[in-house]
Design a protein around this nucleic acid. Structure first.
Length: 418
RNA sequence: GGUGGAGUCGCCUAGUGGCCGAGGGCGCACGCCUCGAAAGCGUGUGAUGGGGCAACUCAUCCGUGGGUUCAAAUCCCACCUCCACCGCCA
């Protein structure tokens, strides 16, 4: 949720932000108008309520006829108070609803435009040069006895899979390495719930444009999270916290319906309904959020270096940010079978957008309570297995295990078993 | 899932329709006292939104949402959470 006070002071900033995202900027006028009307309705209610209070004292002291007369007037006043209150809360609800549809203000420097308009910030590492025809991750994974998508489909349907044997071990290794790195960097390890209440899902901004992506359990009115960002952001919901920054790292399963992606990435485990992820999450002072964002990106790059993957970093365009982010950097690893870079991490600075919706606050120097900033970043996911298998494959179908993972996997090379 | 009990300003607690628009204790902050501290004494003490340069001030908030009433922490209804016991269960 954006800051109403800031909007009043500088409405053009939101207009520019909306245009960069390719969204309607007329909402600015709607908001300002509603805010004005709410203000006057509230003033009217407060005045009437004050009058009613002082009137009540007289009623309680009066006797006989005088009391009866006062009671008649009190009834009238009570009616007016009720009407004024209803009016104020109606406009308040309307304003709140409108406010919650507005995405976050984009940070200065974000490239305008949509999905294709990202800016490449840097390339790290070189795509491997194979002197043989490289196999894709599914072919490799099946030969290694690491991935079984057929049985995944048999048991659960399309876009479900089993990691088997060394595949399951590889995932454990990867996620353990990620947890270890974050814990060493001072993060607090977390194992969060993956079923959350509507207010947690709504507060983190996932019930807007992405609502169709989310699994819902109607019998219990709970949602399955698509990322542990949700339970981590809601962790301090309705709290006033100190000791910023607070950094958490969570390992969780993630669930996505992938509703709008029919026919896309149907082979293998690139795009699936359920995967595991290690996610970093920071609560910090909004004044420090830009620096914190760059730190999260550095930790992601550190992790990518450990598994020896070539990748590029992109600055995601305004129209592709999602509603909560003011800026987003993705790391995309090279996938040889596709001759393309594919997203393996994503770090967002949500500034005070989520914190305002979730009422996560801290005290500023003046002792006033202010929303904090929230940021998130991926440290490793199941999808990384795709890039690891493909980039480290060898002519005989074996796969070299990156050095940093060897002590977790217990071997240097994964050999085909058929 | 069943039965019973409970949810008040950081913590504990008073409070069964108008003198509670919330009292007390603890904690905390500041001051007095002291060489310094403890003890003692005094003052203050939350959140949200609005108005004022300010000191301050107005409204809302007694788990949540409805209702009754001129008036609700207090009465009524529903729900949520926690505790205890019982049942069921990977």
């Amino acid at each position: 949720m954006i800051d109403l006070r800031a909007l009043r002071e500088d409405p053009d900033r939101l207009r520019a932000s909306q245009r960069a995202r390719g969204e309607d900027d007329a909402v600015v006028d709607t908001l300002l108008d509603l805010e004005e009307r709410r203000r006057s309705a509230l003033t009217r209610f407060e005045r009437l309520r004050a009058e009613q209070k002082s009137f009540g004292k007289s009623v309680s002291k009066a006797q006989g006829d005088e009391r009866q007369q006062l009671l008649d007037r009190a009834k009238e006043l009570s009616q007016q108070v009720k009407e004024a209150e209803a009016e104020a809360s109606r406009i308040g609800d309307e304003l709140d609803a409108a406010l919650r549809t507005v995405p976050n203000l984009v940070e200065d420097g974000v490239p305008p435009g949509g999905e294709q308009d990202f800016r490449v910030l840097e390339h790290v590492g070189e795509p491997p040069a194979f002197d043989f025809e490289p196999r894709d991750h599914l072919e490799l994974g099946e030969a290694l006895g690491a991935i079984d998508t057929e049985r995944g489909a048999k048991v659960s349907g399309a876009r479900f899979f089993y990691l088997t044997g060394v595949g399951a071990q590889l995932q454990l290794a990867l996620l353990n390495l990620a947890m270890e790195q974050a814990i060493e960097a001072g993060f607090t390890a977390m194992y969060p719930p993956v079923l959350v209440k509507p207010e947690a899902m709504e507060g983190t901004g996932f019930l807007g444009a992405h609502a169709a992506e989310v699994y819902r359990l109607p019998a219990d009115d709970l949602y399955l999270v698509g990322t542990s960002e949700v339970p981590l952001a809601a962790y301090h919901m309705d709290e006033i916290i100190g000791d910023l920054p607070r950094r958490y790292v969570a390992w969780s399963s993630c669930f996505r319906r992938e509703a709008g992606s029919y026919g896309k990435d149907t082979r293998g485990i690139i795009r699936v309904h359920q995967f595991d992820k290690v996610e970093m999450f920071s609560y910090c002072d909004p004044a420090d959020s830009h620096e914190e964002h760059l730190r999260l990106l550095e930790w992601e790059k550190q992790m990518l270096a450990k598994v020896e993957l070539p990748y590029r970093v992109i600055d995601v365009a305004a129209g592709d940010l999602g509603s909560s982010a003011a800026r987003k950097y993705d790391c995309e690893a090279w996938v040889p079978s596709q001759q393309a870079y594919r997203e393996v991490t994503s770090t967002s600075n949500c500034t005070d957008f989520q914190a305002r919706r979730l009422a996560v606050r801290h005290r500023d120097e003046g002792g006033r309570t202010r929303p904090v900033a929230t940021l998130n970043g991926t440290l490793a996911t199941t999808r990384w297995i795709v890039a690891i298998l493909e980039n480290h494959q060898r002519a005989d179908g074996s796969v070299r295990v990156p050095k940093a993972l060897q002590r977790f996997v217990g071997r240097e090379v994964l050999e085909p078993i058929r």
